[in-house]
Each structure stands twice: as C-alpha cells, then as structure tokens.
Design a protein around this nucleic acid. Structure first.
Lengths: 248, 248
DNA sequence: GATTGGCAATTACTCAGACATATTTCAGGC
DNA sequence: GCCTGAAATATGTCTGAGTAATTGCCAATC
C-alpha cells in the first residue's frame, strides 16, 4: 500500500500530497511537533503505540519512527521500551531550536512566549551591536550600508524589504565574530520576523523604520559601542511596541 | 546478522557494546556528530551512501538513517536523493543545541568557541540576575539559599558541590519567569560546566567561589537589580579567568 | 556557441514484516 | 512485606524490496 494521506499543514489549497522538497517523515514531524507545542498533546501524555499511530497516519513504521527521532532530538518527547513515547515537560524542550520556533508560530501565537522572546532579544541584540561597534571592519560596514540602501528602496511590506532588513541585522551579527551569538540571534530574529510579517498584515504601521536603523549604523561605523548598544535598545523596544499594538 | 560493532566513544575501557540506556542510533548520532563538529568531516563533504556507510558501521540502514535524521534535525547535515548526504556550513549548525554542545566538548576543546560561549554567558547571565532581582518571590529565594548552603558544605571538586552550583544558577533562572531565557542559559551553563569539571582536574584552583555567589544572592534578595547584574558580571568574569588560566 | 530539453543513472525515501531487547507489571515464594 | 522471577508489551533493530526524486549528461535547437 502506498501512502494516501495528505498530511498538509498551513491550511490552504491542499492540492499537493505534500510540498515538494518536503519528505514524508519531515511532514509528520512538523505535524506532531506543531501539535505538541500548541498544547494539543500535554506534557506527560503518552502517544499511541508506533504500530497504531503509524496505521492511523497511513504511513510505515519507519517513516513514523524517523519523525519521532527528530522530535526526540529537539527534546519534545522521549521513548522507552514498554513505556511508550511520552511528551516531555516544557523545560526539556529546545525552545530556541529554529524548527521548534517555527512550529510555535505555525498555530496561534502565544503572547506570553512572544514577550519572552522579545525580552531575550532586548538582552542580546544591544550587546551584539556593542560588539559589532568594537570589531567591525570595512567589509562589515559595506554590507550594512548596502542593506540599509535596499531598505530605503523597498517597504517592509514587500519581500525585498524584509530581506534587506534581515541582511542588515545579519551583517551586524557577522561583525561580532561570535558564532554562538550569531546562531542564537538569527533564530530569535527569524521567529520575531514571523510576527513582523503578521503585524504588517494588519496594515496599521505608518512608522518609518529607517531612522532607527541609521542611528544603529552610524554608531557602529563610528565605533561608539555605548551609542550602538543604546540605539539598538531603542530599535528593539519600538519593534516590541509595534507588535504589541498590532495585536491588541 | 546482529550488530557486532562496539561504537564506544569517550575512549576508555571499551568493554560494553554501548552504555546501557543508550540506543544504537543514538550512539551512531553521537559518533557522527562528534566527528563533524570536531572537523573530521568538513562542511561540504559528502558522506558515503547509506548502504555503504551502514555496512561500514555494521549496522542496519534503519539505525543509520535514524541517526542521520537526528543530525539533520540539528542542522549538521542535509540529505537529498541522488546528491547524497552532505555536511552543512557551520552557520547552519544549531550550536546551542545541548547535544551539539556536548559533542563539541567530547573531543578537544576549541578555545575560540569556549571564549565565544563565555562572551554569550557574560551577556545573558547578568541580565538574568537583573530580572531575577525584580521578579523573585519567597520560594525562589528559599531555593537559592538552600543551594548556597549546600555549596558551603561541599567543595566544587565533588559531584555534590557541582550539583549545588547548578541548582543555585537554576534557581536564579527560574526566578526570571522567562522560558526562552531559561532554556538558553541552562544549555550554556551546562556546557561551561564541562570546562569547569576539566578545570578542577588540574587542581590549581584555591579560590573560594562562595563570596561571589553570596554577593549575587544578597543583591537579588534585596531586589537591587543593578547590584545583581554587576555581581553576576563579576562572577562570570572570574569564572572565565579561572578557565583561561587552567588551560594556558 | 550558448541554451534548453529530455533521458538515464544514482541516491535517498518509503514500505513491509520479522526478530531482538529492554522494561514494566504481576504473581509467587521466602 | 519484601524480594525474586516470569510474562507481557512496546520500542529497538534487521533485512530486502520497490518507489520517487534529483542530478548530470547528452543531444537538439536557437
């Protein structure tokens, strides 16, 4: 028997069996992962047995098991012989894993969690800007300047505009020369931009983001660490305010 | 045929086929993951085909595939039909994943990476102490005090002492009420304590860590956010200094 | 000469079913 | 009542077959 289940997520035109480039076990992991982070399965809950669950999904046991391995790798579940597969308590989850973040935002957004992410961002990003001001070289500044120019041309409502925004922040991170910091900030930034995209949809954002970004750039270019940190602090604070107002 | 390979890591008395409680695919993931983060496989390198590699390891294809799924979930590799499985560039790795951190420290420690982690810790922990000072309740303080008492009784050279140290920091994190921050800081803290354990082994550390911790506790108990942040900053700085000196 | 189209080969992906192993649970004996 | 051992059950591992998708080559065309 061949798989006859759609397993499509992000509800929409459910025509294709699954998006191209997406493997079956990946789709299962996404489906289960989203169900867990959304609270559909509670910590401590036991999943059906492998045989039963894979039959329910109309997939082979191998495909299902590979999906569970992914969830296990991200700390969402734990499997033991005879005991079955159980959802782990939330403090075991790798909340900052890019996939887990994506799953968290694939359903309804948990405002409390978003606040926590912004709080973390407000801690990390200003510090990153500070390091960037101390360590940037000519190539870093060039990249930032180019991204800034692109941001001026395209609105944040367009895909090109959001890409430019991402590029600007990425350039700052690269200048910190700290891989751990880069990984962390990139994950948080991506997740937060989920909400930005959402925010734009409610089209109540006339504020021009360029001046905030220019202040950050100028401080980094001057090598003024304190000013860079402060400018970034403001930028994050304003972003949180925008997000908050667009959701209230 | 049954698996006849040992797959033992952490070189030592290689008696058991693999540590109890450790599944085969987990052992493979550990072995491959450690090999990748240590640079044995370079980004862009292509792994042998599933059939060939699983035969080399004397394990079934299923076990090997499940291990690869874990690595894929952590951003270390990517698999595509016909193209094979390739090691991804380092900026795609989830460097802050607990397992990836563990693999990083299972081999020779990369001093540059350790510095980066300490830098990140120096950013996050003082901010966490600040939040804890603002939000802690009686139960939080009680937990910190208990951990502090345990630290006084046992040296950091003992397992009990290290547990108490962890408990103290965990209690501070809990008081921040920020899950994302807790997850992050716990991962970094655990990784850094790898180095602490290593540090102790070189037994050149007469410094008493208690006063530093007491300063942090007092500031948090008083609700003095600035003092808490500053005290934690000092604590992290001293820890870095100790680690640096014990490795030089 | 450069570009586009189709073809074939290779590789991962999925499926199916059997057997092995570990852990919990419960029954029995000291 | 505690400990010991056996049975039940779910995950873990193995094998082998067949499917699907991507790449790289080659030819035909502009």
């Amino acid at each position: 028997m061949t798989s006859d289940i759609t397993l499509d997520e992000e509800g929409g035109s459910g025509r294709a069996p699954r998006g191209t480039g997406r493997r079956l076990h990946g789709a299962i992991a996404h489906k289960l992962g989203a169900a867990i982070v959304s609270g559909e399965y509670q910590p401590g809950d036991r999943l059906e047995s492998e045989i039963a669950f894979s039959e329910t999904l109309n997939v082979s046991r191998s495909a299902y098991r590979e999906a569970v391995q992914v969830l296990t790798a991200k700390g969402l579940v734990e499997s033991r012989p005879k005991a079955g597969t159980r959802v782990l308590p939330r403090n075991r989850w790798n909340l900052l894993d890019p996939d887990v973040l994506a799953w968290s935002f694939s359903g309804e957004a948990d405002m409390e969690f978003i606040r926590n992410l912004f709080e973390l961002r407000a801690i990390v990003e200003p510090a990153a800007a500070r390091l960037a001001a101390e360590r940037r070289d000519r190539a870093d500044l060039k990249a930032m300047k180019a991204a800034l120019g692109a941001m001026r041309q395209h609105s944040l409502a367009t895909e090109a505009g959001r890409t430019a925004d991402r590029d600007f922040h990425t350039a700052i991170l690269q200048a910190t020369r700290n891989d751990a910091l880069i990984t962390l900030s990139a994950s948080i930034g991506a997740a937060v931009n989920w909400t930005t995209q959402f925010k734009q949809r409610s089209r109540a954002l006339p504020r021009n983001p360029i001046p905030d970004h220019v202040r950050v750039y100028d401080a980094i270019a001057l090598g003024d660490a304190d000013a860079a940190s402060e400018a970034m602090r403001q930028l994050v604070a304003l972003a949180l305010e925008d997000t908050r107002s667009s959701m209230a």
